[in-house]
Amino acid sequence: MTDRLLTWTLGAATLMVASLIAIIAAFLLNESLGMLNRVELGRFFTDSGWSPTMSRFNILPMIVASVLLMAGAVIVAAPLAIFTAVFLRFYAPSPVIDIGRRIIEVLAAMPSVVYGLWGLVVLVPIIAAWQQPGASLMAGILVLSLMIFPTITIVVHSGLAAMPRHYIEASQALAMSRAYMVRQVVLPAVRASIAAGITLGAARAIGETMAVMMVTGNIVAVPGDLFDPVRALTSNIALEMAYALGDHRGALYISSLLLLSIVILLVLINEFIVSNKLEH
């Protein structure tokens, strides 16, 4: 009897969360469809610019900016995070392990507006001294990598901690050096955790709004180099939603739908990597 009750309670909770996602997706689709009936999909990529009040809906520069910000942040943060996780698990003396983990947990939980503030006040002027204007793709990538670094580190570290101890014993008994063991046995054995960490990090990077808005300059243009200002899809929605009406509003819904699709795509890629045996 209690077992059935528990099954129903757990099932109901799961169903509620799952249907919430479906409801949000359906809402976005519904809001976007009206717009898509009036405006051809291709125009979102080929219009002469982003002036939604004048019926010009090119969101391509913002897609490019968002993807570059995400990719840049992952490229900077992922190796650092994996190194840190391996260091904390296999190399660090025990007092360092405890302190290190606490710091990373705090970093992971820090509000994004704090990262944004730091980026705006400290990082942007430094970049500006190097190359104007400072608020740029580069500033966005650096702030985002700082934000997703702890996320990836925590996921990879818990993968390392959960790895069966007998892999280590077997490696040691086979006269492997610690470096060889980490490279050839440990990292391949936890590749699912690494993929999951990177996916979570990438999803956080592409979804981040506040910190990105504070440091990237928010100019709608495809960046020519790392020091050009950009506007991310997320920032665009946050900046314009308050006053957007009609088709303008519709275009922002389409942007949201696009963000959701990118995140779903990331999760699918992760699934593919994990399920696919990456044996040579």
């Binding site: 069966p164 007998h166 892999y167 014993e169 077997a170 008994a173 046995v185 391949p188 054995a189 044996e279």
Partner: peptide
């Protein structure tokens, strides 16, 4: 070892 411990490769 007591339990077979091949690597997951």
């Amino acid at each position: 070892f007591q339990h077979p411990n091949p690597f997951p490769f």
